[in-house]
Simulated assay, not measured.
Amino acid sequence: MLTPEVRAGIASLNSLNSRLSCVIVGIESHICVTQTALDLLSEGHNVYVIADGVSSVNKEEVPIALARLRHAGAQVLTSECWMYEVMGDAKIAEFKEIIKVVKESAESTKEALQSLCKI
């Protein structure tokens, strides 16, 4: 999914040619998500794949894709883990807003993670 337009957008964001931190969610974890993550990794970027934010028509593909990406150097984590990690400190004002999002999405997050863990 790193089309010329996306690459141009990355270049404009990354004028210092430093490593970007890229968060990946999407469908067809074993195709689009994997290829995008591998491309970003090969270009030296930090890649975070949100496990409960990816899917596939064939649910069996998801854990295989996540294992492959983890082995390739991507950080595979849950949406809740990523949100708290990005916040960094419970003392900042935005933390209370993130807690609301976590609570509001708790049931759907639980269902997604249970689906991943059954495979």
Rank of each mutant, 00 (worst) to 15 (best):
A37N: 01
V62I: 15
A51R: 13
E28R: 14
C81Y: 05
C81D: 11
G88V: 05
L69Y: 03
I31E: 12
S42T: 04
N14I: 06
V76M: 08
T78M: 01
Y84E: 08
V76G: 01
A67C: 02
K59H: 12
G9A: 12
L69Q: 03
E104F: 09
M83S: 10
S12G: 00
R7D: 13
I99T: 13
N17W: 08
M83P: 00
E28C: 06
A106K: 15
S108H: 06
V49S: 05
E5Y: 06
S18C: 12
V76E: 03
E61D: 15
K59N: 12
I50C: 03
A67M: 09
K91P: 00
V86T: 13
T3E: 09
R68H: 11
V54N: 02
A112Q: 11
N58I: 05
V23A: 09
Q35V: 02
I119P: 00
A112D: 10
V6G: 01
V76Q: 03
H45R: 07
A74Y: 06
E107M: 10
A67Q: 08
A90L: 02
V6M: 11
T109W: 06
A51Y: 04
S29C: 15
L116E: 11
V57A: 14
G53C: 05
L41K: 04
N58W: 09
E104V: 09
D52E: 06
Y84P: 00
S115N: 14
E85S: 08
K118Q: 14
V54C: 04
C117Y: 13
A93G: 01
V23Y: 13
K59W: 09
F95R: 05
L13N: 07
A72H: 06
N17L: 09
L2Y: 04
H30L: 07
V47C: 08
I50W: 00
E80N: 05
I24E: 03
H45S: 10
E60N: 13
P4I: 10
S15E: 15
M83R: 05
H30K: 06
N14W: 05
V102F: 09
C32M: 03
A74V: 02
A67P: 01
V57C: 02
S12R: 15
M83E: 02
K96G: 07
E61T: 07
V25Q: 00
E5D: 13
S42D: 13
V49N: 00
L113T: 07
A8G: 09
V57N: 03
I50K: 03
S18P: 00
A93P: 00
A8P: 01
V102S: 09
I98F: 04
Y48L: 08
K96M: 10
A106W: 07
A72T: 01
S12E: 15
C32Y: 02
S21G: 12
E107R: 14
I27K: 01
N58V: 12
L20E: 05
W82K: 06
V6E: 08
G88I: 05
D52Y: 07
V6Q: 01
H71P: 00
L66A: 08
S21Y: 04
N17D: 13
L66I: 10
A8Y: 09
R68G: 09
G73I: 10
M87T: 07
I99L: 12
K103L: 14
N17Y: 09
S42L: 00
L113A: 03
